[in-house]
Write a protein that binds this DNA or RNA. Structure first.
Lengths: 172, 172
DNA sequence: CTAGCATGGTTCAATGAATGAACTAAACTG
DNA sequence: CAGTTTAGTTCATTCATTGAACCATGCTAG
């Protein structure tokens, strides 16, 4: 896309959000960043995304303020991409959409389960913890593999996610 | 898109959902259906979408079981598109994404506000009614224009949405 | 010192999807 | 019978995505 070209006529906040986050691949990049993926090469291997597209998307997300690009070592100089607060707030829509997919598009059982890290209760589609009675944000969430998860992928990120993992913790 | 081509390797329910709902325009079609838009011509005028794309998207959504295409009169024969239960369940992700856009991408104040129809309380980003303590589905929701709404659009759907409106009630 | 490698990109030709304008078709309406 | 309403399809142009190849930097092993 890169357009608003047509979307911008919509005067609708959903359309505005989709201009940014509705492009092909973008939401999957954000999902990976939520898991804790930070490096170009890890996004590349885990997503199977063309390099040119990944570069464009990372750049757009940085410019929009959803990702922060920062140097994590100097020799050799290396940059990593981490979610900003604005990006982390996409957690609710991302989770809700993933759970919808789980409910309606999956025959094999859930691939990943999300838990309130501090109490171990499973989250519902609105990231609500029924035990604590609160909405749980990304920082407090733990992913665990579910019964429907395949084990065919061998990239480091997929392998790391075969065990439980606190969201946002660096991966792999 | 039309692909899973690459997404399908992801073994991720978010990717599955995006195969269906992540194509350009698709989520805006669903948003309109949630408002109560049902006829081809109304989608067309409200979205400013190319006819070929609208036809393709409506067809894909019907085939995926998110929309139901049904005859609403016989002479002349006319069809309308209405959300199925599966489609209506996208309410939470759609609302959450729209509210995120409202919070971070809008300078002028909210364009539309969503209320629990039975008690009049404003919904939060997780469709939660703080007065009743429940998550409110689409059927129980009312939209009202917010202070940031522009009044430049003159298509019938936009005009109808300048007043309060129960979601899913036929529009215009 | 130099060959190779790891990382993070850019470039480019080919493919495929979106766009917008024009056209079709069925059934009513005046 | 001419025109209108509704719901599409067709098609040439434009634009984005893809995948492969290439580039650059700075380390590391021999």
């Amino acid at each position: 896309m890169a357009l608003g070209k047509n979307y911008e006529a919509q005067d609708c906040s959903l359309a505005k959000a989709l201009e940014l986050v509705g492009e092909r691949w973008t939401l999957l990049v954000i999902r990976d960043a939520m898991y804790g993926v930070r490096r170009y090469g890890d996004f590349l291997a885990h997503l199977d995304i063309p390099r040119a597209v990944l570069s464009q998307r990372l750049g757009a997300l940085v410019e929009a303020g959803l990702l922060d690009k920062r140097r994590y070592q100097d020799n050799p100089p290396r940059e990593e991409y981490v979610l900003t607060e604005v990006g982390r707030e996409l957690w609710l829509p991302v989770l809700a959409l993933a759970q919808w997919g789980e409910r309606h598009l999956t025959s094999t059982g859930a691939r990943r389960l999300f838990f309130h890290a501090t109490c171990g209760t499973r989250l519902d589609q609105a990231a609500h913890c029924s035990a604590c009675g609160v909405r749980v944000d990304l920082e407090e969430t733990e992913v665990r593999p579910g019964p429907g998860l395949e084990t065919s992928r061998v990239d480091p990120v997929s392998v790391a996610l075969r065990g439980p993992h606190r969201m946002l913790e660096p991966l792999p």
